[in-house]
Nucleic acid binder design. Structure first.
Lengths: 163, 163
DNA sequence: TTCAACTCGACCATTTGGGTTGGGTTCGTC
DNA sequence: GACGAACCCAACCCAAATGGTCGAGTTGAA
């Protein structure tokens, strides 16, 4: 028996776009800047749909994270050193601001009565999220070495359970 | 000039449903258990659409967080002590699991090459999110006293900036 | 018996997510 | 100087989710 209203929206949802974006960026982090990697090569390296990838790479380029060269011998490469690009940067480039409460910024919502402090909870949530996403750079990712704090969080046994 | 692809999905998005749910739960936390509050009263206390509220209250009831009495003198009340219900519980009751990467659990996705450790980043993200949402109870909210760790996060000046 | 109140499945209009299509523009090369 | 590889980009498409509403019940107290 299903509930009256389906319940399937997670509070934290990494969109396909954001996920691909980070994967592509990670791939770019290990390619030499002077030898760009082509769209098709990138897409197949991460097993992602080509058209969608080029779409995303365009956003990353607009954001200034990625550069590209056209024509033969062309391709994409990072415009910034991998150690200077955080995962948060990549996600913001494709998805916009990191957090929202049904479309608005947390600080712009006002709550009544016993819910008054709720805005602060959402703000704390966002801060804690940033601590993670701004704490990992593309260089970290590519090297397979996450910052200690992140490793510790991920290693907590209960961290690996769904819910 | 708008970008080629709209970019509007935040990584953390509190749905209207979840937001209303927590607000309603907070309201219930300050109503005596022996004197239920009616749907209309609840809805107007939080200035939320009545039909939607009853919808949500049904989910909270199914989850066992809320109970209700019918008929005259009826209404809704918390089925559990406010100090035993966390915000995470409320959100999960209406939205399902807290985190996902485009629909799947983070630990069920596999990443290639330089993106290999990405799963751990998403897992750390979820852990850090839980630390916040499972750290605040309805009693905390209703009392206006958030745990020190949360207060500290929310009070950081840069925490209040959009992005 | 009557009325206030919860119950709950069905419905519905948008918006968004997750892409695809197709035409252009820029290069190196032959 | 044309050819093809590669990026560029706006427009389009469709299924699913979101954010609700409606209305016909049931329940219970006075």
């Amino acid at each position: 028996m299903k509930p009256a209203m389906s319940a399937t929206l997670p509070a934290v949802k990494i969109s396909a776009k954001a996920d691909y974006a980070v994967r592509l960026a990670a791939e770019l982090a290990i390619t030499p800047r002077n030898l760009p990697i082509t769209g098709p090569a990138l897409a197949s390296a991460q097993q992602a749909p080509l058209a969608f990838c080029e779409n995303i790479l365009g956003l990353l380029r607009t954001a200034g994270l990625v550069a590209s060269r056209r024509g033969a011998e062309g391709g994409y490469y990072l415009a910034v050193a991998p150690s200077e690009v955080t995962i948060a940067d990549v996600i913001r480039a494709v998805d916009g601001p990191l957090a929202a409460v049904h479309g608005d910024a947390p600080e712009s919502v006002t709550y009544l009565g016993p819910a008054e402090r709720l805005a602060d909870v959402w703000i704390a949530l966002r801060a804690s999220l940033r601590d993670v996403l701004e704490g990992v750079t593309l260089a970290d990712l590519a090297a397979g070495k996450l910052p200690a704090r992140i490793e510790k969080l991920a290693a907590r046994p209960e961290a690996r359970t769904r819910r």
